[in-house]
Structure formats: C-alpha cells, structure tokens
Amino acid sequence: MRIRVISAIAYILFAPLIGGLLEGIDRKISARMQRRVGPPLLQPFYDLGKLLHKQVISVTNMQAFLLLSYLVFIMLTGVMLFSGMDILLCMFTLSTAAMFLYFAACITSSPYSTIGASRELIQIIAYEPAVLLTCVGFYLVSGSFRVSRIIDVNLSNLVYLPGVFIAFVFILTIKMRKSPFDISTAHHAHQEIIKGITSEMGALNLAIFTVTEWYENVFLLAVIALFIINKNPWSIVSALIVLAFVYFLEILIDNSSARMKYTHMLKMAWGVTLVLAGSNIWVLMLIK
C-alpha cells in the first residue's frame, strides 16, 4: 500500500520534470540528426518559464478552465496507473481527458484550431482500439485489469504480447503527435494548419498544455514499461532500457518521415491493431 502511495506522489511531482527532460533530449537528438547543434537540454523548462510570465491572451476566457481540467484528468490517469488501479478505467479517464483538450480547441471557433481539433478526434479513433486491446492483452496474461497484478507476473508480459506491444508502440507515435502522424498539431513550424489544435493557446494556456503533454508522455511510457516489469526488481532496469530504445525509435521515426494523410493514418493504425494485436490476442485466447 505504501509503495503505491509513494509512486503516485512521485508521479505527480516528478513526471513533469522527466517529461520536460525527455523533450529536451528529444530536441537535442533531433537537432543532431539534422546536423544542428540544438538547444540546451533544459530549454523546455526555460520556454515554460517564459510562457508563465507572459500576459494571458486568448480568444475566449473559457479555454483556461478546460485546459486545467485536461491537466487534472491526465494527472488523475497517471495517479491511477502508478497506484496500481484498474488499467481499463485509466484509459477511459484518459479518453475523457482528451475530450477536454478537444473542447478547449474547438471552443475558440478559430479555423486552424478547429481543424486541428477535428483531426485530433480522428487520431483518437485511430489509437483507441489499440489502447483497449492492450488492456485486454494484459488481462489475458495476468487475469486482472489491475496494474498491481499486471506487473506481478513471473515472466514479462512482453513474452506473451509481442504483437500487442508493436501495435501499442505504433499508436504511441499518434498519441505523442509525432511525424508521420502529427496531423492535429506539430512540434515543427511551417505546417499547413499553423499549430493546429494549439493555434489559439498562448501564455498560461500553452504552458498548461505543455505540462499536460509531459505528464501524458510519462504515463504512456509507463504503460510501455508494464510490458517489461515482472516480479524480479531487476526487470525495472530492463524496462528503462526498453523505454530508452522506444523513445529513440520515436525520435528517429519523427525525423525520418513526412506527415501522412489522416485516411492513411487511420487505415494503417487500424490495420496494425487488427492484424498484430488481434492475432496476438487470438493466439493467447487459444493457449491460455
């Protein structure tokens, strides 16, 4: 019980730090891949500090409260995961949080923001089945949706769930809004929809969005870690290695691919989910 409370509190306190650092590393590695020097490692934090000191400018003052709700629901999702609760309900809370982001973008009625928001919804359709099937996969292996039971296995979940793992890593690119699936917003300039879903977010609002993204990324990486962690405490180390590898892979894909049309994204994501995760679960159902 105590370890659950501690890890939940640790998530609230350190997730933004880790998320920010990850973004710093991301920028640095991306820059090196493009033969640039890149910003300092702590640049995301400097940016955040600057955003917080700016005057709040917004199209509608309803946006701040929706974004704050978005933040809190993402935090709640993470807290639930880290305190070992039901992963399926975690994911449902996550989708409720995503709704708040959608509202915060389309409430402005700004053309770029609205188109970004609509595309965000399509991204949600694209990744949701894989997310649900991941939970189901864990359930099949460990017999429970509870995170505390999922990691309490002799052999890492990955052994039974290779297909589900690949499907989840695939949709991770969509979830992290990285190229080629950065269709609702992008971390790079020169997009045809400006900044998409974040077009009308400035100062405090953008800061909230950024922090929430950090929280969310840490949460998503934690789900990846669930594939690796088992009863053996050393598995945490291997989980960290896998996470580093996955994150590097995301950066590599981000830098080496061009944005796709949403129809392609939808077809690919569903195809991968159906074929890899679906067949993986089918096999599990047969042998378990």
Binding site: N61, F65, L68, S69, S110, S113, I194, S199
Partner: peptide, 22 residues
C-alpha cells in the same frame, strides 16, 4: 474539477484577442 476551475479561471485577467486567420 471543471466547476472549480471555471470559477478560478474567470478571475484570471485575460486579454481577449481575435482568432488567428493568417
């Protein structure tokens, strides 16, 4: 949560601007 933040954010001093249309 949403009602609490609604009350809170209505107090934030916001500079209202037009939406961006290029």
């Amino acid at each position: 949560i949403p009602p609490v933040f609604y009350l809170y954010s209505s107090k934030i001093h916001t500079n209202r601007k037009l939406s961006y249309m290029g």
